[in-house]
Simulated scan of single mutants.
Amino acid sequence: MELPIQTERLVLRSWKEADLEPFAAMNRDSRVMEFLPRRLTRAESDQLAGRICAAMRESGFGLWAVETRRSGEFIGYVGLLAANFEAHFTPCVEVGWRLAHRFWGCGYATEAARKALSIGFTAFGLDAIVSFTVPRNVRSRKVMERLGMTHDPADDFNHPKLESGHPLERHVLYRLSKDDWMRSNAPR
């Protein structure tokens, strides 16, 4: 996949050393990490960025660093990632995002995730893409719905990487098939 990738307002690109500090700040922010198991230290955040970059080298796609076209400022990540756990719907590829709090409510997650879906279905020939979160994460669920993803409560699951009884253990699963994506993105 040739980078950078541009949308109307954003650039999806490879990670840079300069992204690590703002990424670490995001991962320390309790608002950003509200529906994740815990906030990350700088070292843990740097390790996560390293794993993201390694996954991109391995699969050709991944969680791209995102910046605004206007300022060039790093705002977070959006992209595709192969699930690294076993569940009734794996193996699969997930579309995911994490943006700094001050960039919420601008439509950036939806804009970049739409591009990621397009790349997954057209450049990588995926048949389906999923997304998941905890039931209370209404903001992310709304993004999933704006992307045309659908939720069937029968697909909900307990995340296997969280201990039984953890308050974030239960997850909702959203899906989008290539056929449904093509129907909703066909030229009119």
Rank of each mutant, 00 (worst) to 15 (best):
E67T: 05
D152C: 01
P187M: 06
K142D: 01
M26F: 03
N185V: 09
L48I: 08
F121A: 15
I52C: 06
Y108C: 07
E86Q: 15
F132Q: 01
D180H: 05
E44A: 10
A54P: 06
G96R: 03
L63Y: 07
K142L: 09
R188V: 12
T7G: 12
R183F: 05
V66T: 07
R42L: 12
A87H: 08
P4T: 12
R42E: 14
H159W: 15
A25H: 02
F103K: 02
E169P: 15
N185D: 10
V11S: 04
R13L: 10
E163L: 11
P167H: 03
R141F: 07
I119Q: 01
A49N: 04
P135I: 15
R146N: 10
S45Q: 00
E44Q: 09
E17G: 02
D127Y: 11
L162S: 13
R39Y: 07
A18F: 11
H166P: 13
C92L: 08
E17F: 15
C92K: 12
L126K: 07
S131K: 00
F85S: 14
N137K: 08
T68V: 01
P187N: 03
A154T: 13
G60C: 01
L168N: 15
E169D: 10
L20N: 10
E67G: 01
R136I: 08
V78E: 05
E34G: 03
V143P: 07
P160T: 11
L176C: 10
Y108H: 10
D29W: 08
I119T: 04
L20K: 06
G79T: 12
K16V: 13
W104N: 00
R188K: 04
E2Y: 12
Y108S: 06
G72H: 13
R9H: 10
L173Y: 04
V66W: 02
Y174W: 04
R42S: 12
G120P: 11
L81F: 07
H171L: 11
R175S: 10
V143K: 01
S140E: 11
K115Q: 15
A87V: 08
A18L: 06
R183S: 06
E58Y: 03
R9G: 07
S118G: 14
T122F: 10
L48D: 00
K178H: 15
P37A: 14
H171A: 04
E73Y: 09
A112W: 15
E8G: 07
L10Q: 02
A186E: 08
S131H: 02
E145C: 09
N158K: 13
E94R: 02
H88G: 12
F157C: 06
V11T: 13
H171D: 02
E163V: 14
Y174D: 00
C92V: 05
V32L: 00
K178F: 14
W97F: 12
A154I: 08
W64D: 00
R9L: 06
G105V: 04
